[in-house]
């Protein structure tokens, strides 16, 4: 498939600290890509560099085949960006904010109004359009920012935490809108909510210290961990001796204890019965078994070292 965004050895320095380290990857047209990672991993900076807010110190970025630095103005026409922080002018109404940006992109007033009304209906914020931004709640402002980014009908939409400040209903409305654009537009977003990423992903990029640690679909990323489960058994009295006995069982991986509970990973469910047998003489209070998800993948120890 045709690439919508292509990064070639892109690096970004802030002072002498490397924020993005020689990133090379492409994003296909019409795909929905989530970027996740720890704080300071470089997620937001990556979005800022792709969207043209800041230049990269080295490497090249191509937007629809256009070099984003050499042919910036043309490349910018294809991009819509929603930053994490609220950046609408508080002393203008919501519709004035949106119209102003639409006009800057050379859209006719008629087109701007049609798109604004349609998108605001989908996001249920029509009644707020004539209100001053300073009098509107952050969740509504964020929806307004999404409309602003879409007002010139860009082919690529870049969103930094698109549902930040939103309640459950707004979250759903926003994702309904974004998923409607799936296949039609390329959507790249950063989210702090791993649940959000698990629900909406096409492709996930896990960023770590400015490098791509993992790249692929959720199924692919979790592929190696599919057979892993997380177990938690709470005993009435978890002695050191019992903990050591259970920890030494060959199929028990990464055991740890919190109070009278033992946590461990196991490749097969069979390990669970081995533990039960080994601890048969002790009184158990609670048992939990959980299939691994993105959260577990992001757990630093697990993501970096795997389960030993």
């Amino acid at each position: 498939m045709e690439a919508s965004i292509t990064l070639k050895k892109v690096g970004k320095l802030v002072g002498d600290k490397t924020i993005l380290a020689s990133l090379t990857f492409g994003i296909e047209k019409g795909s929905l890509v989530a970027i996740i990672g720890d704080n300071e991993a470089g997620k937001s900076m990556l979005l800022r560099v792709i969207s043209g807010i800041e230049y990269q110190e080295y490497g090249q970025i191509f937007i629809n085949g256009l070099d984003s630095q050499k042919r910036r103005n043309k490349a910018m026409l294809s991009l819509g960006f929603v930053p994490h922080e609220l950046d609408l002018d508080p002393w203008l109404t919501l519709e004035e904010n949106i119209r102003f940006i639409g006009m800057l992109y050379g859209e006719s007033m008629e087109t701007i109004n049609t798109r604004m009304i349609q998108l605001s209906r989908e996001l249920h914020i029509t009644t707020y359009l004539k209100k001053m931004v300073k009098d509107i709640s952050p969740g509504i402002i964020k929806k307004g920012m999404i409309i602003r980014a879409l007002i010139h009908d860009p082919e690529i939409l870049i969103l930094d935490d698109p549902t930040a400040f939103m309640d459950a209903e707004s979250y759903r409305q926003t994702w309904d809108l974004l998923l409607r654009f799936k296949k039609e537009k390329t959507i790249v977003y950063v989210s702090q909510s791993l649940q959000e990423v698990e629900e909406a992903h096409d492709r996930i990029l896990v960023l770590e210290d400015g490098k791509i640690a993992l790249d692929g679909s959720l199924d692919r990323l979790l592929g190696s961990t599919f057979e892993y489960h997380q177990f938690q058994i709470e005993f009435e009295d978890l002695t050191d001796e019992l903990f050591m006995t259970l920890s030494k069982l060959p199929k028990v991986k990464n055991p740890s204890r919190i109070g009278h509970s033992i946590h461990f990973y196991g490749r097969e469910r069979g390990v669970f019965f081995e533990v039960l047998n080994a601890a048969a003489s002790s009184v158990m209070k609670d048992i939990r078994v959980k299939k691994l998800g993105l959260q577990d993948l992001m757990d630093a120890k697990y993501a970096k070292d795997g389960i030993h």
Binding site: D87, N97, Y105
Partner: peptide
């Protein structure tokens, strides 16, 4: 004010103008 406080300046700079 637009650049420092309101942060509304960045979206303007992303418009396709030199």
């Amino acid at each position: 004010d637009l650049r420092i406080h309101k942060k509304s300046f960045i979206p303007i700079t992303l418009a396709p103008f030199s």
